[in-house]
């Protein structure tokens, strides 16, 4: 859309050289930003300017830019992925802002997500939680059974699928006042707990994944519901209740 007046923005961006250094908010002025550009494109424009000036560009995570990879992880104006619901940062557009706005851009804050550089955090804690039990053991020796051969009630299949839409972006952790990973962990547990294929390893799965999440340093769940509101996939905290139930069941049973 040509002719629309660009936005003049004041950006307050967290700059930090590496995990060890202290880091601080730096202020940048960026003018004539198209309202049609995405938030990440806006940062690309800023980085081009910084590179032209010989300064180091702002590091930020991104990959697919279509809302499914979960890489873009920015805490924008006090909310994960900025204003707007059910979107990742790449799906946020500059038309959500006004001319003259000041925009705060910070990395996810959590003990379990250490900063690598600037706005990039290390989210490998999520991988380790997955490795602890976010799978089913299927023999793949050549005579693997088709998963669809097992009839599953539509309601459960849908709920399992909803849980499985988690992209592991970490917005739940970023939004939570306790940096709890409960929504992520519970979604990964639920996607199996709701299906017959997941039953065999159900007990150890919940015990090991919860244990790993706590070992990584994610906090307890206060049931504030902030995660559910900020989740780009709208994953319900009903999954957290299910995790609590599964954990109790697994703990009581031998």
């Amino acid at each position: 859309m040509s002719g629309a007046k660009g936005l003049d923005l004041t950006l307050k961006i967290w700059r930090q050289k590496n995990a060890q250094s202290k880091g601080k908010l730096e202020t940048y002025q960026l003018n004539s930003v198209s309202p049609d550009s995405s938030f990440l494109e806006m940062l690309d424009i800023l980085n081009n300017e910084l590179i032209e000036k010989g300064e180091s560009p702002v590091e930020f995570d991104h990959d697919c830019r279509e809302g499914i990879c979960g890489a873009c992880s920015l805490y924008i104006n006090g909310e994960p992925h900025g204003p707007g619901k059910r979107i990742t940062t790449c799906q946020l557009h500059m038309r959500s802002f006004n001319d003259g706005d000041t925009i705060y851009i910070e990395p996810w804050r959590a003990r379990a997500f250490p900063i690598i550089k600037d706005l990039v955090v290390d989210r490998s804690a999520f991988d380790r939680i997955q490795h602890a039990g976010g799978y089913i053991s299927v023999n793949t020796s050549g005579n693997t059974q088709d998963a669809n051969a097992i009839p599953i009630e539509k309601e459960y299949a849908d709920e399992a699928f909803d849980a499985a839409t988690c992209i592991g972006c970490g917005a739940c952790v970023a939004a939570c006042k306790n940096a709890s990973a409960s929504l992520f962990v519970s979604a990964k547990i639920s996607q199996y707990a709701l299906l017959p294929q997941g039953q065999v390893e159900a007990k150890n799965r919940v015990l090991n994944m919860v244990k790993q999440a706590e070992k990584e340093g994610f906090g307890p769940c206060s049931n504030t519901g902030a995660c559910e509101v900020e989740c780009p996939k709208g994953i319900s905290i009903e999954n957290i209740a299910r995790m609590n139930r599964e954990f109790l069941k697994a703990s009581i049973a031998e």
């Binding site: 307050k12 906090g219 307890p220």
Partner: peptide, 16 residues
């Protein structure tokens, strides 16, 4: 403990 360093700017009222 889970968040040793907080956000510079946060809007917790937006989601809880």
């Amino acid at each position: 403990k889970a968040r040793p360093q907080g956000y510079a700017f946060s809007r917790p009222g937006a989601n809880s």
